[in-house]
Amino acid sequence: KELVLVLYDYQEKSPREVTVKKGDILTLLNSTNKDAWKVEVDDRQGFIPAAYLKKL
Score class of each variant (00 low, 15 high):
22 K>Q: 11
38 K>L: 15
22 K>C: 08
53 L>T: 01
42 D>G: 15
12 E>Q: 14
6 V>T: 02
53 L>S: 00
19 T>N: 06
27 T>N: 08
12 E>F: 12
23 G>N: 06
52 Y>E: 04
46 G>D: 03
20 V>Q: 00
53 L>W: 00
8 Y>M: 15
18 V>Y: 04
27 T>R: 13
13 K>W: 06
2 E>G: 11
4 V>I: 04
3 L>K: 11
40 E>N: 05
46 G>V: 15
4 V>M: 00
12 E>G: 15
16 R>Q: 14
3 L>Q: 10
36 A>R: 14
9 D>Q: 03
14 S>D: 12
38 K>V: 15
29 L>E: 02
13 K>L: 10
33 N>I: 06
7 L>W: 03
40 E>K: 10
3 L>E: 05
43 D>T: 10
7 L>S: 01
20 V>N: 00
37 W>D: 01
47 F>Y: 15
52 Y>C: 15
37 W>N: 02
55 K>L: 13
40 E>T: 08
46 G>L: 15
21 K>A: 07
50 A>D: 05
6 V>S: 01
34 K>R: 11
15 P>H: 10
54 K>L: 12
11 Q>W: 14
4 V>Y: 05
36 A>I: 15
32 T>W: 09
23 G>W: 04
2 E>T: 12
16 R>H: 14
3 L>Y: 14
47 F>A: 03
27 T>K: 13
48 I>C: 07
44 R>K: 11
7 L>H: 01
32 T>Y: 10
26 L>N: 01
32 T>F: 10
52 Y>S: 07
33 N>Q: 10
8 Y>G: 07
34 K>S: 13
30 N>T: 08
45 Q>V: 15
47 F>D: 06
31 S>G: 10
37 W>M: 02
51 A>V: 11
12 E>W: 10
31 S>N: 07
18 V>W: 08
22 K>L: 05
13 K>S: 10
34 K>M: 12
36 A>Q: 14
30 N>C: 13
44 R>T: 07
19 T>E: 03
43 D>S: 12
40 E>W: 08
15 P>L: 08
37 W>R: 00
9 D>L: 03
56 L>Q: 03
4 V>C: 11
5 L>E: 09
28 L>N: 01
12 E>H: 09
9 D>K: 01
27 T>H: 10
15 P>D: 12
23 G>S: 02
29 L>A: 03
21 K>N: 07
39 V>P: 01
28 L>S: 01
9 D>F: 03
1 K>A: 11
55 K>I: 14
13 K>I: 08
52 Y>A: 13
35 D>H: 14
16 R>L: 14
8 Y>A: 14
28 L>W: 01
34 K>C: 14
24 D>C: 09
49 P>W: 06
24 D>A: 11
32 T>Q: 13
10 Y>H: 04
21 K>F: 09
2 E>W: 12
49 P>A: 04
19 T>H: 05
26 L>F: 03
17 E>C: 08
2 E>N: 12
32 T>P: 03
23 G>D: 04
4 V>F: 02
56 L>W: 07
23 G>Q: 03
37 W>T: 01
5 L>M: 10
21 K>T: 07
36 A>Y: 15
41 V>L: 12
43 D>P: 03
15 P>R: 09
10 Y>I: 02
56 L>H: 04
17 E>N: 07
30 N>W: 06
23 G>T: 03
25 I>Q: 03
40 E>G: 08
54 K>M: 12
48 I>R: 00
22 K>N: 03
49 P>Q: 03
42 D>K: 12
48 I>Y: 01
44 R>A: 05
41 V>F: 10
40 E>P: 01
25 I>L: 06
36 A>P: 03
54 K>Q: 13
25 I>Y: 04
42 D>W: 08
8 Y>L: 10
37 W>Y: 06
31 S>M: 07
46 G>Q: 06
50 A>Q: 06
53 L>C: 11
51 A>M: 13
10 Y>P: 02
23 G>F: 03
31 S>C: 14
26 L>I: 13
2 E>M: 13
44 R>M: 07
5 L>G: 00
8 Y>W: 12
16 R>S: 14
6 V>Q: 00
21 K>G: 04
55 K>Y: 09
21 K>W: 07
27 T>G: 07
52 Y>T: 06
25 I>R: 04
24 D>W: 14
11 Q>M: 13
27 T>L: 14
7 L>C: 08
13 K>F: 08
39 V>I: 08
29 L>C: 05
39 V>A: 02
41 V>P: 01
46 G>C: 13
51 A>Y: 13
22 K>Y: 04
29 L>S: 03
50 A>R: 11
24 D>R: 09
31 S>A: 12
1 K>V: 12
14 S>L: 09
24 D>Q: 15
10 Y>D: 01
20 V>P: 02
45 Q>N: 07
9 D>H: 04
26 L>G: 05
6 V>L: 03
1 K>W: 11
8 Y>S: 10
35 D>P: 03
14 S>H: 12
12 E>I: 13
27 T>S: 08
13 K>N: 09
22 K>T: 05
49 P>M: 04
22 K>M: 07
19 T>Y: 03
6 V>A: 07
29 L>N: 02
7 L>I: 09
49 P>G: 03
29 L>H: 03
48 I>D: 04
1 K>M: 11
35 D>K: 12
4 V>W: 04
30 N>S: 13
50 A>C: 10
4 V>A: 07
53 L>V: 09
35 D>I: 11
17 E>D: 07
38 K>A: 10
15 P>Q: 09
35 D>E: 13
31 S>Y: 07
7 L>F: 02
35 D>A: 10
30 N>Q: 10
17 E>P: 08
50 A>F: 03
10 Y>V: 02
56 L>T: 05
9 D>M: 03
54 K>G: 05
44 R>N: 05
10 Y>G: 01
20 V>A: 13
55 K>M: 10
53 L>H: 02
3 L>W: 14
5 L>R: 06
27 T>E: 07
29 L>F: 03
18 V>N: 03
25 I>T: 04
14 S>V: 06
44 R>E: 05
18 V>S: 02
4 V>G: 03
